[in-house]
Design a protein around this nucleic acid. Sequence first.
DNA 1: GTAAATGCAAATTGTTTGCTTACTG
DNA 2: CAGTAAGCAAACAATTTGCATTTAC
Lengths: 142, 142
Amino acid sequence: MTAPARRMTPQRAEILAELRAAHDHPTAADLYERLRPRLPRLSLGTVYRNLDLLVAAGLAAKLTAAGAEARYDGRPAPHDHARCRACGAVADVPALPEPDLPRLPDGFAVEVRHLEYVGLCATCRRRVGAHAAPAAGLAPGA
Amino acid sequence: MTAPARRMTPQRAEILAELRAAHDHPTAADLYERLRPRLPRLSLGTVYRNLDLLVAAGLAAKLTAAGAEARYDGRPAPHDHARCRACGAVADVPALPEPDLPRLPDGFAVEVRHLEYVGLCATCRRRVGAHAAPAAGLAPGA
DNA sequence: GTAAATGCAAATTGTTTGCTTACTG
DNA sequence: CAGTAAGCAAACAATTTGCATTTAC
């Protein structure tokens, strides 16, 4: 039950600082690259280990996209996300005041709500246009 | 622009049928296992290829959790999800009529909204109790 | 001094891809 | 027939893990 004592190493401090300073929801590899100038011996494994820790501690959120690399968010205030399905970029959007919770499964205890809008950002919209948009001629039923 | 002509193979039909019949948001491997009795020569690669196709066609949705395996949802009606962070199970929840969209990035074209409630299901709540709940003694600021 | 954390590399895991053969339209 | 899809295995990419060494407390 007692969580192991934590040590504040330079790596840990820098990872947390960098994540908090970042506005672009960096991936683990992004953070690794950004920190390497300052911490030349840093390893990617350490980045992953510390990110996991931060997430477990509630200090960061892990954002997972379909297939893509996980991105991390170090901002505490509740907000939602807009993700471009073409370039993968994730932007913050202000949280709507949500009226109430839906009919959840019996006994389910909600801890966090994760709301994401997926679509095309302005740049990709111009470049790829209407692509693979919901439309099909594949299935018999529905 | 012209999508390649699609053929309806037995594998494709079975995968789609199984996904539609499933109520538990199966992973690709789940579907593979369920179909093997009927299609002994089926390969996992085929399952993935067809699921991608179904998703691209808008007939299925790919649900990605933090780190975990992707799960697939073959139900057309818009609804949201409740995911247990302990056992990974995903249940459907009725969609709340969402009033309007938040202030999205300039020029962002929303295609889908993805809303997920993460927490503990009744079973896991009992078993693991209050675990790794948002609480920490790790960071200096905030 | 001691347990926790790092660095490094190897191991896992989920998913994708290349290529040959089979089969739908 | 023409060309898509399946099967299989190898390739890949992201993430995790084992272990010896370092380091914060």
